[in-house]
Design a protein around this nucleic acid. Structure first.
Lengths: 216, 216
DNA sequence: GTCTATAACTCGATAGAC
DNA sequence: GTCTATCGAGTTATAGAC
């Protein structure tokens, strides 16, 4: 339900990357052996090492795949459930909530997992991990920008997006530790309360006409 | 600077736990071998397996140690730097910022690391991991409760503490991935903005005298 | 309680035929 | 591109003397 068996019609390289992706997500990078990847991908070691000189290169391919998966796996499903930008934002967050529950809290955010596991020991992977976080926060920034005129003037969309991202990542950590959505829901409740207060304070501060007249 | 060499005057059991704690913190549980623990603790395997029947039992001892370290390592230093409860809260958070920088982003939150690495694969460890998170959030809840009368009535201290915790944990994930305090600072900036707005809205809603007169 | 030696296995990676 | 067979090192854990 949370990950598909690997399509045997895919070529060997794609099967390897997909198998590694699923295994790294469930078990982590270090805990996943090459032999396990070979088995799930239904490939022999000669083929794997033909495409990838080392396990670290498989990781690189997995992280590149996640860049491609952001739109179809994370953003699009959420955007189809809501039209309003603010609701789209919370629909993205709710997507992670659904995954936590559907996987019995075994799956959260694959990038967050790898960030903590590998940031110190595998510096080569760090830029790609950061790139994944950056793509996510840019997408959230774009959503926030589309209602930024209703926020207090001193709230910067990119900074607020980063805050949303941090709260999300941490909420996933807590939910997985507690095996419960309660800490996740508590964090999201306060996050929504914050955004609502920002919108109220933005409305008090002045509507769009006030802003247009604001040039000196 | 970020972790001490192990005191050779400690008994073997303590040296083992301390060595394991430091190694798990820096490298993770799976990536740390028993042989490494033996080397750092300066103990032979016969001694280790005399005290702990398996690696998982060493982990358990490490997680129990962290419960004891919360007060002296996290809370007390922060409480000594600030007297006001609100500033104490942000002093705790700043302690993690200092550790991130002092360790060149190799060390963040040991519990967060283990939560993501082991929640799925080592269910036996999960309750102890949750217990550590719980102790932290209880301490933060106590701080918030001491100025709860200045917050809007519908803000529950425990829920706000959970939000603070989630934002912190996620901010650490991002800082380590980016090798920069910027995402950490952005998340903390918005968190402080949120708390300040709560205090302003709480003041508008009514001071302590209003609250006392509120019983029906 | 601590020592040495090692069993039983898995790890990432390679060689060389086809 | 894919196969089988395997290398050498490392893994967790154990045996048995002291």
């Amino acid at each position: 339900m949370t990950d598909q068996p690997i399509d045997s019609k895919l070529n060997a390289r794609s099967r390897i990357v997909e198998a590694a992706r699923q295994l790294f997500f469930r078990q982590g990078y270090t805990a996943t052996g090459m032999s396990q990847i070979l088995k799930v991908a239904d490939v022999r070691s000669g083929s794997l090492y033909y495409f990838f000189p080392s396990k670290a290169h498989v990781l690189r391919a997995v992280l590149e795949t996640y860049l491609d998966l952001l739109e179809p796996n994370i953003l699009r499903p959420a955007f189809e459930r809501a039209a309003d930008p603010l609701e789209r934002l919370f629909a993205v967050l709710d997507g992670y909530r659904q995954l936590l529950q559907a996987s019995n809290f075994e799956l959260g955010c694959p990038i967050g997992n790898l960030a903590l596991e590998l940031s110190a020991s595998h510096p080569q992977a760090r830029p790609l991990i950061a790139e994944n976080f950056e793509a996510w926060s840019i997408a959230i920034t774009a959503l926030i920008e589309s209602f930024a005129d209703r926020l207090p003037r001193d709230v910067r969309p990119a900074t607020l997006a980063r805050h949303v991202q941090a709260t999300m990542e941490g909420a996933i950590v807590l939910a997985r530790a507690y095996h419960s959505v309660e800490p996740f829901d508590q964090a999201m409740h306060q996050l929504r309360d914050y955004v609502e207060r920002l919108l109220r304070d933005g409305a008090i501060q002045g509507g769009p006409s006030d802003r247009a007249a604001e040039q000196p």
